[in-house]
Amino acid sequence: MVQAPPHELSVQNCVPIAQKELKVDLRKRNNVHVIEAVRPDAPVLLYAHGFGCSQHMWRHITPAFEGKYRQVLFDYVGSGQSDPATFDPVKYACLQGYVQDVLDVCDVLGLKRGVHFVGHSVSASIGLLAAIERPELFERMVLVGPSPCFINHLPDYQGGFERKDLEGLLDLMDQNYMGWASYLAPVVAGEPQGDSLGGELSESFCSTDPMMARIFAQATFFADNRAELPLVTRPCLILQHRNDALVPTAVGEYLHKQLKGSTLEVLDVTGHCAHMSHPHLVTAAMQRYLSPA
């Protein structure tokens, strides 16, 4: 079995290794699905799921935009119904590997500009990095529960966790993967929807290959993309959960200050997955933000 990278790997400085040119069916690799719009020139919504999740988590959001937007859904390699045979533990040891997935999906669909990116949790950072690399590709960014860094760097930054806490979480993954999933899922779900949503999240975590999940978890929780934030030129909507065990409200305020021209909206939600627990709040915020002035 391929070994997961050690805790000491500095994922924010991970430099992706040049990939060999392979003839890969990218639609199959990333399980790409498109909900077509009425007009062929309709604007595009590209949804990117969080760690341990899949495109299925957006099912409560997409109906609100059917007909008016061309909606693109996909799974990162190693998640959901993606092709596990294409997983590269080196490529996906840092967020840049997932950034490449986003760009590859856009390329295979012939998307060149005007994409509205909707990313949950770590996908918010992935989307911002993609927008830095290809700013002409994106129109606006919708960030649901974003965090550029989960680790505290006091007194200047409150990410929510001490490094040793996250190392302990990864140790639990190594020792008891099912126990880790059972512990983390209700924390992510939050109360009072912990039972139903927590069960769905736990099932999603458990259905993911443990080795692939371990690598994505380390890339997620040990990334630090604060230095890249001033490089973002696309307008952003930050949707912060009011009571989020993973992302303190201070993170949303920090992002709002660092992302020029951004809009911060605090949702009266407990948990880390408003698009699943309170989709009406997310769709309403998106509609306000995306509608022409």
Rank of each mutant, 00 (worst) to 15 (best):
L143M: 07
G252V: 06
S262F: 05
L45R: 06
Q175M: 15
S204R: 10
C14H: 15
I238D: 06
A223C: 10
S207F: 03
E66Q: 15
Y69H: 11
I151D: 04
N243D: 15
V187R: 06
H56A: 15
R113Q: 15
D224T: 05
T62Q: 13
Q3Y: 09
R234I: 02
D101R: 02
K257G: 15
L169G: 08
C106P: 03
R226E: 01
L239M: 09
L255F: 12
A131S: 14
L169V: 08
K91S: 12
E66P: 07
S125D: 08
E136D: 15
G190N: 01
L246S: 14
P155Y: 01
M276S: 06
R29I: 04
F87C: 05
V38M: 08
A124M: 02
F138G: 06
V11I: 04
D244I: 12
V38T: 13
A37V: 03
D107P: 10
A223Q: 13
L184E: 07
A274N: 01
K28R: 14
H278S: 01
C236D: 03
Q240D: 05
D165Q: 15
V34S: 08
S121E: 03
P43Y: 02
V11A: 04
V34D: 06
V32F: 09
H60N: 14
L184A: 13
F65M: 02
Q55F: 07
D156W: 07
A42S: 15
L237V: 04
D165A: 14
G168H: 02
Y76P: 10
M211C: 11
V115I: 11
G168D: 00
D195N: 07
A93V: 02
L73G: 14
P16Y: 00
D171P: 00
G194C: 00
W180Y: 14
R288T: 00
P192G: 06
S125A: 14
F117N: 04
D224G: 07
V32T: 10
S125Y: 07
K91P: 03
Q175Y: 14
V122G: 12
V247N: 09
C14D: 13
H278Q: 02
S182C: 02
D41C: 09
K91E: 12
E265W: 09
V34N: 08
S123I: 01
P84H: 08
Q12A: 13
Y183E: 12
P84Y: 09
F117G: 05
P63T: 03
K28H: 10
R226A: 04
R140V: 00
V115N: 09
L103V: 07
T208C: 14
A223M: 08
G80D: 00
P40H: 13
E66D: 13
V99R: 00
R288I: 00
A219W: 02
A181L: 01
S54D: 03
R226Q: 06
F221P: 06
K91G: 07
Q55C: 13
L143A: 05
M57H: 05
V282S: 02
L172H: 15
F117I: 02
P43E: 03
V77W: 05
H49R: 07
D174R: 10
A181H: 01
P16N: 02
G50N: 08
T270R: 13
Q19E: 13
R214G: 06
L111E: 09
Q240H: 09
G119W: 02
A85L: 11
